[in-house]
Amino acid sequence: MLELVIFSTLNGVLYGMLLFLLASGLTLIFSMMGVLNFAHASFYMLGAYFGFQISQWLDFWVALFVAPVCVGLVGAAVERWGLRTVHKWGHVPELLFTFGLAFVIEEMVQMIWGKLPVDYRVPKLLDFPAFELFGTTYPAFRMFMLLISVAIFLVLLLVLTRSRIGLIIQAALTHPNMVAMLGHNVPKVFMMVFGFGSGLAGLAGVIAGPALVTQPSMAHVLGPILFVVVVFGGLGSLSGAFIASLMIGLIQTFAIAINYSIGDLLTSVGMARPVQGMLSDLWQVTVAQVGPVVPYLMLVLILIFRPTGLMGTRES
C-alpha cells in the first residue's frame, strides 16, 4: 500500500506539473486577453513534434532550447496576423479562430509527420532508472521533467514579481484598461504574452513527448482539462493555477488507485444495492472509473459556489 501511495504521489505531482507548464501560459493568455485559446494544447503538440524533428536532425538538448522558441515564434505570428485582426470583434470570434486553428495544426501535423505515433526517444543521457523502490523503478527522465517544471515555475514567479515586464503583465492581468491608458503598448504585450505562453506549452511538449506518446491526437486529450485548471485556480492567478494543477494531478492519480463504488459503500453500511433499472450502473461505477470526470465536477461546483475560482479576484 505504501508503495502505491508513494508512486501515486510522484506520478500525481509530475502530471500536475505538466498541467501547470501548459496552464501557466494559458492563464496568462486567458486572463490578459480574455481569449479562450482552444489551440493551446495544439502548441503543446507542436512542441513535441518540433522537439522530435530537431532531435532527429541534431540532438535532444538542442531541441530542448530551440523547439520552444520555434513554437513561441509560431504563437507570436498567430497573434500578430490572426488573433489581432479578430480581437476587435470580441471574444467569441477569437475563440472560434483558435478552434479552427486547432483543426489546421492537427491536419498539418498529420500531413507532415503522419498519423502514427513517431519514435521520439528519451535522450541516452537520461535513459536509466533514477531509483528503485519496492522493486519498481522510476525513470530518470521523469525526474528531469519534474525538475524542469519546478524550475520554470520558480523562474516565472521571479519574473512576474521582480521584473518590470512582470509588473506590467501583473497589472495587465487585473487592470488591462488602466495599463493601456498608462501608455504601454498593449498589443505588443499581448503578442509577447501569447508567444511566451505558446512557447511554454511547446516546452511542455518537448519534455512530455518522449515520456508519453507523440501523436496527432495528443492535443485532444489535454485540451478541455486545461480550462478546468485555469478557471478552477482563478482567473489571473498564477499560484491558483499552480495549486489547481497539482490538485487535479493528484486527485486523478489517486482516484485511479481506489476501487470502491457507491454500491460497495451502501453494502458496507448494510444497505442493499439497487441492481435493476436504467440507472443501476450508477451504483457499480468505481472511483477509478470516474477519476477523469472529477475535474469537471470540481469546475462546476467551484463556479457555483465561488465564481472567482480558488484564488482569483474577478469573474471575467
Binding site: 465536477l297 469546475l299 471575467s316
Partner: peptide, 27 residues
C-alpha cells in the same frame, strides 16, 4: 452568472454528462 462563468459551467456540465453517457450504459 453570465459571461465567462456561465461559459465555463456549461463546459463543465457538458463534459460531465458526456462522460456519464459512457458510464451509465443502461440509459
Amino acid at each position: 452568472r453570465a459571461g465567462t462563468v456561465f461559459a465555463m459551467i456549461s463546459l463543465g456540465l457538458g463534459e460531465l454528462i458526456a462522460s456519464l453517457s459512457l458510464i451509465l450504459r443502461g440509459f
